[in-house]
Design a protein around this nucleic acid. Structure first.
Lengths: 340, 340
DNA sequence: TTAATTCACGCAAACCTTTGCGTTGATTAA
DNA sequence: TTAATCAACGCAAAGGTTTGCGTGAATTAA
């Protein structure tokens, strides 16, 4: 025996009136008498009536669901972004479907298709490190589904995005290291085609330039975000005949791995080598000395991404002009870098 | 201008036939000619037609969506469980809506209501540590929504559940410590009303009993799962005049915090104090010595939870008889406990 | 008192799909 | 040849909601 949900019809029958009247009373439509309105609302509350969102969706041709794709859930950063998106979406009456791309382009394409078939009203995504082909995004755009990038973006796709000020973050980090007297500052960058990795690299280079420091290509290495790669990068840096005296890393996990290795080799942090990471991961509180980092407003990124979607969904502008929001990052100085 | 999705009507018009015929061709209904079937399928593929899941939902009175509530996303364990649930659900044509309770009963009640109003077909949940009142679950059951507990459960609610063999896991852990010569084994337990905490405590007590070791109530403390509490528990244990020589913790994060403090005080692990944790969190690979743990088949828990839902959803049995699946845990010996 | 206006409500269509039943034309059996 | 069977397809309803339009009654203006 299938359980039947309560419908407008049930309320209408109970009150000897029509479905229309009940609907109008609940949506406070003007042409309804106060008396009837009260009767309906009272009964609806008593019976705990809630409209069937599926029927509404069908009628409005909207699913009131947005899709969100993140590369990895284990990253504290993305967990918090998720929270920001979800809270904002739910408040606006939208549901959220989360999917993981696991940094794989193939999987990204698959989940996008799944989401499209589910008739999502919008798609918020931080693309994978492998995402260099953009056809799958065009499929989204062709269906007029608002697309928003957050944290990472693809330059060739003209859509709204919310980003962290990676460039200035990196610039601040390196400037700080220079101010504390570091002369040979290495950078372990992220994957080459990741937008935020590019920006952080630029910030690094420009800071060096501004303070008239020579760029040494031995001090720049790309990491593919695995633990092994992080260790390998660090190994190469501390294997140089002319050691770096500071390492600025693409993210804090890399810094963490690096610090563990550096300490193992008997080097002192920050005396021999200073460290600055990017983003607050919980692990960084588990190592001594505490890691100096650039922190990102993760929750706010989620909020803003959701808001950008609402802006676009409610816009009558045609075609919609994409917006870009850039949120400030902040340098938090701890003990892994020297005092000024 | 709203973008119109492709419908059966469009295909029917193009082929000069009826909606019914198109629908039947695509769902390979018997009463349809091979020729017509091929024409329809070819065109549908060419136009990339996919049925509107919202219309199907309305017709079938099913949302093909299951709700999942977890206490905390930051836990590696729950992230992996999520993956298991999602993969299994999607494969079966279901979507998943994830929500966080953040270990708060109030929030748990809220998200359950949100999910009910979204017309989920089933609810998988790991209740919060605060969940002692069960009214909100009864609301779910009254609406005939299959409810499944995973990892944690409420004894008073008669529904299917998939659990880890917490009792035997703890028993194995403590037996191992005893086998390596530990005489004073402390236990930092989880919140008192958490089902798996109770089970692990029982395993601890029974292992002591089996090997004729006295239970010392000084060696048993409850932790509320915050970092501060973990530190406080450890502080109390190593402040005892008669020190413990081993600490078995409710989870690995507590063990981690404990190890950091113990090392700080100049005690050697495992020589002075051995440690055994529960579950593999990534942080445990970041400390020396490596933590001995009981590992849980997290992905499989997710899979089984989803399967239990499908069992119930497809069952004609009335009333449905709840099932309980208990998955084995495994002791992985590393260097934080002594050699036998 | 009559005509014009306003108020309060109901009918029916639309959103898209699936499916029971009826209909048509062709094929088979008697 | 006639009756019975069957294959192949279409009609229409159902699922629950919102909304344009129409209608009757009550109110106001003349």
């Amino acid at each position: 025996m299938v359980y039947r949900q309560l419908t407008l019809k049930d309320i209408a029958k109970e009150l000897n009136t029509s479905i229309t009247t009940v609907s109008r009373a609940l949506n406070d439509h003007p042409s309804i008498s106060q008396k009837m309105k009260k009767r309906v609302i009272d009964l609806a509350k008593e019976l705990d009536y809630h409209p069937n969102p599926i029927a509404v969706s069908l009628l409005k041709s909207r699913s009131y669901t947005i899709g969100v794709i993140i590369p990895e859930i284990a990253h504290n950063f993305f967990s918090i972004v998720m929270g920001g998106i979800e809270d904002t979406a739910i408040q606006a009456g939208y549901n959220v479907m989360f999917c993981l791309s696991k940094e794989s382009l193939e999987r990204e394409i698959n989940v996008i298709n799944t989401l499209i078939y589910s008739r999502i009203d919008g798609l918020l995504i931080a693309p994978t490190k492998e995402t260099t082909s953009y056809k799958h995004f065009e499929a989204v755009l062709k269906k007029r589904i608002p697309l928003i990038f957050f944290d990472r973006y693809c330059a060739d796709v003209p859509v709204s995005k919310v980003l962290v000020d990676d460039y200035n973050g990196a610039f601040k980090a390196v400037s700080h290291l220079i101010a504390t007297g570091c002369k040979r500052i290495a950078h372990i960058a992220g994957p080459e085609n990741l937008s935020n990795s590019k920006q952080r690299l630029l910030g690094y280079l420009d800071a060096l330039k501004k303070f008239n420091m020579l760029f040494d290509s031995d001090l720049l290495i790309n990491c593919d975000l695995t633990k092994e790669s992080a260790l390998e990068c660090t190994r190469r840096l501390i294997g140089l005949t002319h050691l770096p005296d500071a390492i600025f890393t693409y993210n804090s996990s890399i810094a963490f791995e690096g610090m563990v290795m550096v300490k193992d080799r008997g080097l002192k942090i920050p005396r021999d080598i200073a460290f600055v990471g990017f983003a607050n991961e919980p692990i960084i509180s588990y190592i001594e000395p505490q890691l100096t980092t650039i922190i990102q407003p993760a929750y706010q990124i989620g909020q803003e991404a959701a808001k950008l979607f609402f802006d676009q969904a409610n816009s009558t502008q045609e075609p919609f002009i994409p917006q870009t929001k850039i949120l400030e990052s902040q340098l938090v100085i701890r003990s892994s870098s020297r005092k000024v």
